Measured scan of single mutants.
Amino acid sequence: MKKYKITVYDEKTGEKHTIEIEMSEEELEELAKKLAEKHNVKVRIEKV
């Protein structure tokens, strides 16, 4: 498992949230996809 920083940005409201999380790359990609689809936000992932 690796550490990642996830930034979620909502273009409508301008809200931006960043968290650090430790998980596998596959789980992370699935999480990012679900966030983007369900909440209509942009998701950026960076390795820490």
Rank of each mutant, 00 (worst) to 15 (best):
Met1Leu: 10
Met1Asn: 07
Met1Trp: 08
Met1Gln: 09
Met1Glu: 07
Met1Tyr: 09
Met1Ala: 13
Met1Pro: 11
Met1Phe: 12
Met1Ser: 08
Lys2Pro: 12
Lys2Phe: 15
Lys2Cys: 15
Lys2Arg: 10
Lys2Asp: 15
Lys2Thr: 14
Lys2Asn: 15
Lys2Glu: 15
Lys2Met: 15
Lys2Ser: 15
Lys3Tyr: 08
Lys3Gly: 03
Lys3Phe: 08
Lys3Met: 12
Lys3Ser: 04
Lys3Arg: 12
Lys3Pro: 03
Lys3Cys: 05
Lys3Val: 08
Lys3Leu: 10
Lys3Ala: 08
Tyr4His: 02
Tyr4Pro: 00
Tyr4Gln: 00
Tyr4Ala: 01
Tyr4Thr: 00
Tyr4Trp: 14
Tyr4Asn: 00
Tyr4Val: 02
Tyr4Ser: 00
Tyr4Gly: 00
Tyr4Lys: 00
Lys5Trp: 05
Lys5Gln: 05
Lys5Asn: 03
Lys5Arg: 15
Lys5Gly: 01
Lys5Glu: 03
Lys5Phe: 04
Lys5Met: 07
Lys5Thr: 05
Ile6Cys: 01
Ile6His: 00
Ile6Met: 02
Ile6Trp: 01
Ile6Tyr: 01
Ile6Asn: 00
Ile6Val: 10
Ile6Glu: 00
Ile6Asp: 00
Ile6Ala: 00
Ile6Phe: 01
Thr7Ser: 04
Thr7Ile: 08
Thr7Gln: 03
Thr7Trp: 04
Thr7Ala: 02
Thr7Leu: 04
Thr7Arg: 01
Thr7Val: 04
Thr7Glu: 05
Val8Ser: 03
Val8Ala: 03
Val8Thr: 11
Val8Leu: 11
Val8Lys: 01
Val8Cys: 14
Val8Arg: 02
Val8Phe: 14
Val8Asp: 00
Tyr9Thr: 11
Tyr9Leu: 07
Tyr9Pro: 00
Tyr9His: 07
Tyr9Glu: 13
Tyr9Ile: 11
Tyr9Asn: 03
Tyr9Met: 11
Tyr9Ala: 02
Tyr9Trp: 13
Tyr9Cys: 06
Asp10Arg: 01
Asp10Gly: 02
Asp10Pro: 00
Asp10Trp: 13
Asp10Val: 04
Asp10Gln: 05
Asp10Glu: 05
Asp10Asn: 14
Asp10His: 09
Glu11Ile: 14
Glu11Ser: 09
Glu11Val: 13
Glu11Cys: 15
Glu11Leu: 15
Glu11Met: 14
Glu11Ala: 11
Glu11Lys: 12
Glu11Arg: 07
Glu11His: 09
Lys12Asp: 13
Lys12Leu: 13
Lys12Asn: 10
Lys12Thr: 13
Lys12Cys: 13
Lys12Phe: 10
Thr13Gln: 03
Thr13Ala: 03
Thr13Val: 02
Thr13Glu: 02
Thr13Ser: 09
Thr13Asn: 06
Thr13Met: 04
Thr13Tyr: 03
Thr13Leu: 05
Gly14Arg: 04
Gly14Ser: 05
Gly14Trp: 06
Gly14Val: 01
Gly14Cys: 07
Gly14His: 07
Gly14Met: 05
Gly14Tyr: 04
Gly14Ala: 03
Gly14Lys: 07
Gly14Asp: 05
Gly14Asn: 05
Gly14Pro: 00
Glu15Tyr: 13
Glu15His: 13
Glu15Gln: 10
Glu15Cys: 08
Glu15Leu: 09
Glu15Asp: 07
Glu15Ile: 12
Glu15Trp: 15
Glu15Val: 13
Lys16Ala: 10
Lys16Ser: 14
Lys16Phe: 06
Lys16Cys: 14
Lys16Leu: 13
Lys16Trp: 07
Lys16Met: 11
Lys16Pro: 03
Lys16Thr: 14
His17Phe: 15
His17Lys: 08
His17Tyr: 14
His17Arg: 07
His17Ser: 10
His17Leu: 09
His17Asp: 06
His17Thr: 12
His17Ile: 12
His17Cys: 14
Thr18Ala: 07
Thr18Met: 10
Thr18Arg: 03
Thr18Gln: 05
Thr18Gly: 03
Thr18Asp: 03
Thr18Phe: 05
Thr18Ile: 11
Thr18Val: 13
Ile19Met: 13
Ile19Gln: 05
Ile19Cys: 14
Ile19Tyr: 15
Ile19Arg: 05
Ile19Pro: 00
Ile19Trp: 15
Glu20Asn: 11
Glu20Arg: 10
Glu20Tyr: 15
Glu20Phe: 14
Glu20Ala: 05
Ile21Asp: 03
Ile21Cys: 13
Ile21Trp: 04
Ile21Pro: 00
Ile21Glu: 05
Ile21Phe: 07
Ile21Leu: 13
Ile21Lys: 07
Ile21Asn: 02
Glu22Phe: 12
Glu22Asp: 08
Glu22Lys: 04
Glu22Cys: 13
Glu22His: 10
Glu22Met: 12
Glu22Thr: 09
Glu22Arg: 06
Glu22Ser: 07
Glu22Tyr: 13
Glu22Ile: 08
Glu22Pro: 02
Glu22Asn: 06
Met23Leu: 13
Met23Thr: 09
Met23Asp: 02
Met23Gln: 02
Met23Tyr: 03
Met23Trp: 03
Met23Ile: 12
Met23Lys: 01
Ser24Phe: 13
Ser24Asn: 14
Ser24Met: 13
Ser24Ile: 09
Ser24Asp: 09
Ser24Ala: 08
Ser24Thr: 14
Ser24Cys: 14
Glu25Ser: 06
Glu25Gln: 09
Glu25His: 07
Glu25Cys: 12
Glu25Leu: 09
Glu25Lys: 06
Glu25Tyr: 06
Glu25Ile: 09
Glu25Gly: 04
Glu25Phe: 10
Glu25Thr: 05
Glu25Asp: 13
Glu26Gly: 11
Glu26His: 08
Glu26Thr: 12
Glu26Trp: 10
Glu26Val: 09
Glu26Tyr: 08
Glu26Asp: 13
Glu26Arg: 09
Glu26Gln: 10
Glu26Phe: 07
Glu27Gln: 10
Glu27Pro: 01
Glu27Phe: 05
Glu27Gly: 11
Glu27His: 08
Glu27Tyr: 06
Glu27Ser: 06
Glu27Asn: 06
Glu27Thr: 06
Glu27Trp: 03
Leu28Ala: 11
Leu28Arg: 02
Leu28His: 01
Leu28Gly: 02
Leu28Thr: 04
Leu28Lys: 03
Leu28Gln: 02
Leu28Tyr: 03
Leu28Ser: 03
Leu28Ile: 10
Leu28Met: 12
Glu29Arg: 13
Glu29Trp: 13
Glu29Pro: 05
Glu29Phe: 12
Glu29Cys: 14
Glu29Asn: 10
Glu29Lys: 14
Glu29Ile: 11
Glu29Ala: 11
Glu29Val: 12
Glu30Tyr: 11
Glu30Ile: 12
Glu30His: 09
Glu30Phe: 08
Glu30Asn: 10
Glu30Lys: 13
Glu30Met: 11
Glu30Gly: 09
Glu30Cys: 05
Glu30Asp: 11
Leu31Thr: 04
Leu31Asn: 00
Leu31Asp: 00
Leu31Arg: 01
Leu31Ser: 01
Leu31Trp: 10
Leu31Lys: 02
Leu31Cys: 09
Leu31Ile: 06
Leu31His: 02
Ala32Lys: 13
Ala32Val: 14
Ala32Glu: 06
Ala32Ile: 14
Ala32Ser: 07
Ala32Phe: 06
Ala32Leu: 12
Ala32Asn: 03
Ala32His: 06
Lys33Ala: 09
Lys33Arg: 11
Lys33Ser: 08
Lys33Val: 07
Lys33Met: 06
Lys33Gln: 10
Lys33Ile: 08
Lys33Pro: 01
Lys33Cys: 11
Lys33His: 08
Lys33Thr: 08
Lys33Glu: 06
Lys34Val: 07
Lys34Asp: 05
Lys34Cys: 07
Lys34Ala: 10
Lys34Pro: 00
Lys34Trp: 09
Lys34Glu: 08
Lys34His: 13
Lys34Tyr: 12
Lys34Ser: 09
Leu35Asn: 00
Leu35Tyr: 10
Leu35Lys: 00
Leu35Cys: 10
Leu35Pro: 00
Leu35Arg: 00
Leu35Glu: 01
Leu35Phe: 08
Leu35Ile: 05
Leu35Val: 03
Ala36Thr: 12
Ala36Val: 07
Ala36Glu: 09
Ala36Leu: 10
Ala36Lys: 11
Ala36Pro: 01
Ala36Arg: 11
Ala36His: 09
Glu37Ser: 11
Glu37Trp: 03
Glu37Asn: 07
Glu37Cys: 06
Glu37Ala: 06
Lys38Thr: 09
Lys38Asp: 11
Lys38Glu: 07
Lys38Arg: 11
Lys38Ser: 08
Lys38Leu: 14
Lys38Gln: 10
Lys38Pro: 07
His39Cys: 14
His39Tyr: 07
His39Met: 09
His39Ala: 13
His39Phe: 06
His39Asp: 12
His39Arg: 04
His39Asn: 08
Asn40Glu: 05
Asn40Phe: 10
Asn40Met: 04
Asn40Cys: 04
Asn40Val: 02
Asn40Arg: 03
Asn40Ala: 05
Val41Leu: 13
Val41Gln: 04
Val41Cys: 12
Val41Met: 05
Val41Thr: 11
Val41Ser: 08
Val41Ala: 07
Val41Pro: 01
Lys42Gln: 12
Lys42Thr: 14
Lys42Gly: 04
Lys42Ser: 10
Lys42Pro: 04
Lys42Ala: 06
Lys42Cys: 14
Lys42Arg: 12
Lys42Asn: 08
Lys42Val: 15
Lys42His: 09
Lys42Glu: 08
Val43Thr: 01
Val43Glu: 01
Val43Pro: 01
Val43Gln: 00
Val43Tyr: 03
Val43Gly: 01
Val43Phe: 04
Val43Trp: 05
Val43Ala: 01
Val43Arg: 00
Arg44Tyr: 14
Arg44Val: 15
Arg44His: 15
Arg44Asp: 14
Arg44Leu: 15
Arg44Thr: 15
Arg44Cys: 15
Arg44Ser: 15
Arg44Gly: 05
Ile45His: 00
Ile45Gln: 01
Ile45Asn: 00
Ile45Ala: 01
Ile45Asp: 01
Glu46Arg: 01
Glu46Pro: 00
Glu46Thr: 04
Glu46Leu: 02
Glu46Gly: 00
Glu46His: 04
Glu46Ile: 03
Glu46Asp: 08
Glu46Phe: 02
Glu46Ser: 02
Glu46Lys: 02
Glu46Trp: 02
Lys47Ser: 14
Lys47Leu: 15
Lys47Asp: 15
Lys47His: 14
Lys47Arg: 07
Lys47Asn: 12
Lys47Glu: 15
Lys47Gly: 11
Lys47Phe: 15
Lys47Pro: 14
Lys47Ala: 15
Lys47Met: 15
Lys47Trp: 15
Lys47Gln: 15
Lys47Ile: 15
Val48Thr: 03
Val48Trp: 03
Val48His: 03
Val48Ile: 12
Val48Gln: 04
Val48Phe: 04
Val48Asp: 04
Val48Ser: 03
Val48Tyr: 04
Val48Gly: 03
